[in-house]
């Protein structure tokens, strides 16, 4: 592992220990009350979900046109994190919505597109796992669709009718709500970088192992 990895793990651990204190200290939102505090994990996980989808897509493009195995490993690792952070987003959102909107789910554009993005990542992983030879290129093509979906998820709330808040809410947040949110977002981002690094490392080790088996056969 790289030199920065262990210090980053410590910083990330500390941040995840401090974040609940900041979240508990944040004021209650006027209409939603206590349940609004789900926001501090829902939104950072959603951002990380979108970031992972972009990284998976960009690495896949580079793999398709450049052929570097490193990019393929990065895409695979990122796809797993799309599934992880997407699952967190898609579970915490309905738990919040049940209280705030009175329903678990709405088939509006953002929710539907998010579910689709998550399912594309699941399909990517299944293709890699069970697709056999050549599945790396097919999966890379699939990851492009996952990446193309990201702008729709982000801007959909500004253009289609939905009860989701628009993208103007976060920039106008008062400091008392903003500080815990951004702290939580940085914590999630750091965690994402660390998990991505570990997951890429796993693929590197697997590649080494395959090379060892090949050298034995030769």
């Amino acid at each position: 592992m790289k030199k920065w990895f262990m210090p980053a793990v410590i910083v990330c651990g500390l941040m995840f220990a401090i974040a609940p204190v900041l979240i508990a200290g944040a004021p209650y939102e006027s209409t939603m009350g206590l349940v609004q505090k789900i926001f501090y994990v829902h939104l950072p996980s959603a951002w990380t979900f979108l970031l992972a989808a972009i990284i998976c897509g960009v690495a896949s493009v580079r793999y398709l046109f450049g052929g570097a195995a490193r990019q393929d490993r990065l895409a695979w690792a990122a796809a797993e994190l799309v599934v992880l952070f997407g699952a967190i987003t898609l579970v915490t959102g309905p738990l919040w919505a049940r209280k705030a909107w009175g329903v678990w789910w709405q088939w509006d554009v953002r929710l539907t597109a998010s579910l689709m993005g998550w399912m594309v990542a699941v399909a990517y992983l299944m293709l890699r796992r069970y697709g056999g030879p050549g599945s790396d290129k097919l999966a890379a093509g699939l990851a492009l669709f996952g990446m193309a979906n990201v702008p729709f998820i982000y801007i959909s709330v500004n253009y289609w009718r939905t009860i989701h808040p628009t993208t103007n809410v976060v920039p106008t947040l008062p400091t008392s709500f903003g500080v815990p949110l951004w702290f939580s977002a940085v914590s999630f981002l750091l965690l994402f970088v660390l998990l991505l690094r570990v997951r890429v490392r796993l693929e590197e080790q697997r590649a080494k192992l395959d090379a060892m088996y090949l050298s034995m056969d030769a």
């Binding site: 349940v35 789900i38 994990v41 579970v91 915490t92 738990l95």
Partner: peptide, 13 residues
Amino acid sequence: LLVAAYSFVVLAL
């Protein structure tokens, strides 16, 4: 709902 959301995050990670 809040406890369920935070528990799910911790467990999933």
